[in-house]
Structures are given as structure tokens and as C-alpha cells.
Amino acid sequence: MVIEDPKTNKLIEVEKLPDGTYKVTIYDKKTGEKKTITMSKKDLEKLLKAL
């Protein structure tokens, strides 16, 4: 799943891993910076609600 946040000009890509956690990659379209973090479903839901 890919989500675009027009306010921050970032793309957020979410991928479910076999162990039940989620790999979240955040791309900054302005700088080209890429950050990848792994989080639980509960933390991911908090992140998505904040957008």
C-alpha cells in the first residue's frame, strides 16, 4: 500500500512482513531521502490516523 501525504510531500509505503510486523518506508519527494522502519500493527494504525 502506498499513501501520498500532500501536506508534507512524502510517500509512505507499507508492506506486511511474514512475522506480522509492518515495514514502513517514507520517501521525501523534495530531498530524495528514504527512511525505513519496522513497526507493529498498533503503531502503524496510530501513524495512519495522524495523517
Rank of each mutant, 00 (worst) to 15 (best):
G32K: 13
K34I: 12
K41C: 15
D28T: 02
E4I: 02
E45T: 04
K34E: 09
I26T: 07
E4H: 04
K23Q: 14
V24S: 01
K49N: 15
D28A: 01
Y22F: 09
V2C: 09
V14F: 11
D43G: 06
M1S: 06
M39S: 10
P6D: 06
A50E: 15
E33K: 03
D5Y: 02
K42T: 13
L17Y: 07
L47T: 04
V24T: 03
N9P: 02
S40D: 13
N9K: 07
I12F: 11
K7W: 04
Y27H: 13
V14K: 01
K29D: 11
L44C: 05
N9S: 06
K30L: 14
A50D: 15
I37A: 11
K10W: 10
L44E: 00
I3K: 00
E4R: 00
K46E: 15
T36P: 02
K23A: 11
L17G: 11
K30C: 12
N9G: 12
K35T: 12
K16M: 13
D43L: 01
K10P: 05
K34C: 14
K41F: 03
I37K: 14
T8S: 10
I26R: 05
E13A: 05
Y22P: 00
Y22T: 01
T8Y: 10
E33R: 05
D5C: 08
E15T: 13
K29Q: 07
K35N: 09
D28W: 01
K16A: 15
K41D: 15
D28G: 01
V2P: 11
Y27G: 08
M1Q: 06
L44N: 00
K42D: 15
L44K: 02
T38Q: 13
T21E: 10
V14W: 14
I12W: 12
K42V: 15
E15K: 11
A50K: 06
T25R: 08
E15F: 06
D19H: 09
D43I: 02
K16Q: 09
M39V: 09
G32L: 09
P18S: 12
L11E: 03
T21I: 14
E13R: 03
I12N: 02
L11H: 08
L51S: 07
L47K: 01
K10H: 09
V24E: 00
G20T: 07
I3R: 00
T31V: 05
G32F: 07
T25M: 12
K41I: 10
P18D: 09
S40T: 15
E15L: 05
E15C: 03
V2L: 02
K42E: 15
K41R: 14
G20L: 09
E33Y: 04
L11A: 10
D28S: 05
K41W: 08
L51A: 13
T38D: 11
G32R: 00
L11K: 08
M1P: 09
D19L: 10
K23R: 12
T21H: 08
L47A: 04
M1I: 05
Y27E: 05
S40Q: 13
V24P: 00
L11S: 04
I3Q: 03
K7V: 11
K30Q: 09
K10D: 12
